[in-house]
Design a protein around this nucleic acid. Structure first.
Lengths: 136, 136
DNA sequence: GTATTTCCTAGACCACGGTCTAGGTCAACG
DNA sequence: CGTTGACCTAGACCGTGGTCTAGGAAATAC
């Protein structure tokens, strides 16, 4: 059975101890973080599992406040799964849109990169004006 | 020949007039923004073109400071294309990494969504514990 | 002639997500 | 013993990227 200090959790999640405490203050744990008799935080496997999910949600751009909403639903216990589902699905959509957007940006940038590359290879002879060239 | 007011540019770029002025202050235009005799900003097609690129760079997470670095290179004129290229390529990589990351997140979330969906369809009978289930 | 709109500058303000400090407890090391 | 290190709380601080306000000018609309 896992029982980790905040420092250890920081180490293996990549979050700082500050951030971990902050997340707790902000109600971002699905479960109260346990304390030992000395009042030190003790994290279990469930916490690690959740933090993994949590960091993925963050990494994909979910604001802390939305995570908190999700957490609140979880804490309320069974019965609101539809709401949780909706929340996740909304986020899924946002990610998908974001990826489409990034793809778009990537296209444009890849174009510019190619242009520049040909240029640089050709000996930096000509100017590329804005260095970007007219969009096309 | 295009000649737009800041309001018009705001309208067609989606940036606010505040933001446009801020970008200018921050040196994010490859070219000085023209002024009419009344000291009003007058934007040309080149500005629009650049703003389009610029917003894509922003949308893909390039910090203003990096955009400024790029702009500085452009303003210095021909001769530093290799540097510009490097900058763009670095960003390209970051986007690619980000997309990979998002894909990862999407996988996880899609999994959760599916689980929840089955659950909700099945009549919200069972609890899903953290509503997320053990990661697997 | 006054009211509205659009613009101008300079600078304050804001949200977000951390990050760090001060001041303190406790255990272990040498 | 003293000091080092991990932890505790409460709360200040920070970077980023806007967003808005105050105070003013000029044109347009009524």
């Amino acid at each position: 059975m896992t029982a980790l200090s905040i420092g250890q959790v920081a180490e293996r999640t990549g979050l700082s101890v500050h951030t971990l405490r902050m997340y707790e203050r902000e109600g971002l744990f699905t479960t109260e973080v346990h304390r030992n008799p000395k009042n030190r935080r003790v994290y279990g496997q469930a916490d690690l599992d959740w933090l993994e999910v949590c960091t993925k949600l963050r990494a994909s751009g979910m604001p802390l406040e939305v995570i908190r909403r999700f957490v609140d639903l979880v804490r309320k216990g069974p019965g609101n799964e539809a709401e949780r589902l909706e929340l996740l699905r909304a986020h899924q959509c946002r990610i998908e849109r974001k990826m489409a957007e990034l793809n778009d940006c990537l296209d444009l940038i890849a174009g510019k990169v190619e242009t520049y590359q040909r240029h640089v290879e050709a000996g930096t002879a000509t100017d590329l004006w804005t260095g970007i060239g007219p969009p096309g």
